[in-house]
Nucleic acid binder design. Sequence first.
DNA 1: CCCGTGATGACACTTGGTGCCGTCAATATA
DNA 2: TATATTGACGGCACCAAGTGTCATCACGGG
Lengths: 206, 206
Amino acid sequence: MPRWQPDARVRLEEAALALYEQRGFDETTVEEIAQRAGLTKRTFFRHFADKREVLFGGGENLDGVLVTAVRSAPASDRALDAVSLGLDALAAIFDAQGEPAARRFRIVRASPELWERQLIKFESMAGAVARALRARGVGDPAAILAAESGITVLRVASERWIRDTRSTHLPHLVAEALAELRAVASRDAGVPAHSWVTGSRNGADL
Amino acid sequence: MPRWQPDARVRLEEAALALYEQRGFDETTVEEIAQRAGLTKRTFFRHFADKREVLFGGGENLDGVLVTAVRSAPASDRALDAVSLGLDALAAIFDAQGEPAARRFRIVRASPELWERQLIKFESMAGAVARALRARGVGDPAAILAAESGITVLRVASERWIRDTRSTHLPHLVAEALAELRAVASRDAGVPAHSWVTGSRNGADL
DNA sequence: CCCGTGATGACACTTGGTGCCGTCAATATA
DNA sequence: TATATTGACGGCACCAAGTGTCATCACGGG
């Protein structure tokens, strides 16, 4: 007969998710989470570095998904095109998870502390993408800007997605946001195609 | 004869800055900061909401600077042009402060916890800019994307700036980064001006 | 049958942060 | 001049997030 029930980690995750959703992150004690999972505070901190991390255990290798997608992009793709492939891959994963992913995202958005953690995660993703771009020969300011912009696109799209996961789909929202970004950043968007030559280019991309 | 020395807040800020720089944020105790300032822990928390906030008291109204600059942009300016004016205003302020501003920024970058706080601040700036853009009639995905991209530009430029505040100037770095962003985001950059019509425009900006 | 190993509990301890009350100079008011 | 009020601080108790350390005990291998 086992001394303890198995899946302690999963039980802790479920307990935390439920409590954070019910009473909010701040109003929930680690003691309560552990108790609900039939464990102790000390055991909680053996499985998760801190109170927030219990919500971020799932997306361990999101950076990896992005990086492989960027790496496998055709060489003819320019920086933002390669990033776009990474975003598609990630968006497909979240979209497949459906409501659970959106639910977690909503909880995170509801608490400033959790949102801080999420911003750090985005930051790490952008860093990974930037490194992947540099490996493709993209210059340094361009690589960071393309990576950060891509993550911004993902964030904006996600924000819309969690408002309605049924009738909208994340990959589509991502594509839309990316098009919007291109329109915003190009000087001649909205007018009949000026065919400007920017002149001040310093050719650091691709 | 005054019961306490004046400028308690300033003394706390200076003590914190020095200690964070010397021994790092995590290895510094609020108790130590207070002691160095000739005060108590309790008094520290009367002046600052938490241990991090002591470094962010200076930049109270940066959002305001951005917003007024965006608001005063000529009506003919498109979204990112208006944002660019805001970035110029902010960059000028930081550049005028010189080394002290860069020093604070370096301390913040050295500690994950402080960096989290900084990301939240960036987030709030982007939100303020987005609202200002909407007030100019910019549509919603475009407003957020232009605002976030602008803040990204500021971040990238700042990152370079703090590596050498003497020979480089922040406004110039900001302008450079913004040009780079436009190049990265436009499809036809790098090639002789294709004069593409994007077709999938949904005209939500300006 | 014994022996490590690994997951857990138990407990003390540090630190960030808050509530509450007392203290006392400065200022206002009678 | 006498008294009330205010405001900034100290002191203390307290809670919650983490951490270090040791004991416990089922399990698997020899």
